[in-house]
């Protein structure tokens, strides 16, 4: 009687014994990340001049639900403003994408870089230089 139940269950298992594995051998092979991936932030620059696009309007700072963005502004000679320091504490970030959505200057984007583990909490605080130099697939 019990053997009968066992046979039924095993029929399913044995069927899958001869199919391909569905898992992925992670460090050796990687799954493709979709184009809309919402991972590490990136500060955009103008293509021609290479200047940072952010005008320090502070909207991303205000909308962030976990208050993990910190901007220190600087005034340029022509009285425009830029971010002198721009920090995102990824240890608190929810990766909700609201900061990118509200930015009126398209100065912030999110990339597909998802391997963000660190040994130290301080290393989660990404500075402006780090955020400017994020390499993503789209460039």
């Amino acid at each position: 009687m019990l053997f009968n139940d066992l046979r039924k269950g095993l029929a399913v298992t044995i069927k899958y014994l001869f199919t391909h594995a569905v898992t992925c051998q992670y460090p050796d092979e990687r799954l493709e990340v979709p184009e809309r991936a919402r991972w590490l932030h990136k500060l955009e620059t103008f293509e021609d001049s290479g200047k940072i696009k952010c005008i320090d309007c502070g909207l991303c700072e205000r909308i962030c639900p976990s208050k993990c963005i910190k901007i220190t502004p600087v005034e340029n000679e022509d009285h425009t403003k830029n971010a002198a320091q721009y920090e995102i504490d990824l240890g608190r970030c929810l990766f909700c994408g609201l900061c990118v959505e509200v930015c009126p200057e398209l100065a912030l984007s999110m990339t597909d870089k998802y391997e963000l583990a660190e040994y130290d909490r301080e290393k989660f605080v990404y500075t402006k230089e780090q955020l400017l130099n994020v390499k993503s697939k789209e460039g």
């Binding site: 569905v22 979709p34 809309r36 919402r38 929810l94 990766f95 909700c96 994408g97």
Partner: peptide
Amino acid sequence: MTVFLYSFREREYIIDMFEMACGNRLTYN
């Protein structure tokens, strides 16, 4: 134990679809 592995296989399929649509795997917003 077997059911666990099978149902997670199908769930992965759904989560991949969610990721396609909104970019994250668990917290979609």
